[in-house]
């Protein structure tokens, strides 16, 4: 479904990504594991169109998407839940969720009614968001903001969702809830690319994985095999 070949991208003069290739087949759940600074977020930003690659090719559903604005790529169904949540702080929780469905909703008119079924689904998944629906998103706790960010990206009914470091800065209990949500999504058949610094959780919920180091892929394979690999265990399982 998503196929990137020989991607080079970065900020300013130097490349952060130095020839990355990866593939996310339809219906699969793929992990992207790497330490801080390995280039996971740069890769996520490049795949979603926030950053234009210097070299290389990105195919989504068989069509070249590199160079398109991020909004076009999102409308095609490749949606990023960015690192650091990036919820719209001054807007309400419900407005944040509605924005996730922006391309589908009428610009003027009964957009809340049109989105109500999708909102219902998200509130079922994260009941806390329903309680906080009219609160400013910026006032939520880190975990709640993460749930909101995931809820917002799901409102888009994405074909493929990239979750960039959803566990960042979360308390263990909230972390569990977020990962349960990922498992639920996976069971529903959604195609997922999950970027994580800590491999244990990521490898346990995914089919296959790529291990990144300094802008390149150093290892790839089925998640279960990588979890048993002593080199991975030493570097990323702690």
């Amino acid at each position: 479904m998503l196929k990137a070949t020989n991607l080079h991208a970065g900020y300013g003069g130097s490349d952060v990504l130095k020839g990355i290739s990866l593939e996310v087949p339809e219906g699969s759940c793929v992990a992207l594991v790497g330490a801080n600074g390995a280039g996971k977020t740069t890769l996520a930003r490049t795949l979603s169109g926030l950053l234009v690659p210097r070299k290389g090719q990105i195919l989504f559903k068989g069509k070249e998407i590199s160079g398109l604005p991020a909004s076009r790529i999102a409308r095609k169904g490749l949606c990023l839940c960015p690192e650091g949540r990036h919820v719209f702080a001054p807007l309400s929780v419900e407005e944040n969720l509605l924005l996730g469905a922006f391309p589908r909703l009428p610009s003027i008119g009964p957009f809340r009614r049109k989105a109500s079924a999708d909102l219902e689904k998200i509130y079922d998944m994260f009941p806390i968001l329903q309680q906080r629906r009219s609160q400013q998103a910026g006032s939520l706790s880190g975990g709640e903001q993460q749930m909101l960010a995931i809820g917002r990206v799901l409102m888009a009914r994405p074909g493929l969702v990239i979750l960039d470091e959803p566990s960042m800065g979360l308390a263990p209990l909230v972390l569990k809830e977020v990962f349960e949500a990922i498992v639920t999504l996976r069971k529903s058949g959604m195609t997922i690319l999950l970027s994580e610094q800590f491999a244990r959780n990521a490898l346990s919920v995914t089919d296959s994985a790529y291990i990144m180091e300094q802008g390149t892929v150093v290892l790839e394979g089925p998640s279960a095999d990588l979890a048993k690999n002593p080199a991975v265990a030493e570097a990323y399982l702690g």
């Binding site: 979603s48 169109g49 926030l50 604005p69 991020a70 909004s71 999102a74 409308r75 949606c79 990023l80 960015p82 990036h86 919820v87 719209f88 702080a89 001054p90 807007l91 407005e95 924005l99 996730g100 922006f102 391309p103 917002r152 990206v153 888009a156």
Partner: peptide, 15 residues
């Protein structure tokens, strides 16, 4: 308002 709060995140929503 979303663009005003966070232009990148707004782009990711298809705006």
């Amino acid at each position: 308002q979303a663009v005003s709060a966070d232009p990148d995140a707004a782009e990711l929503c298809g705006i």
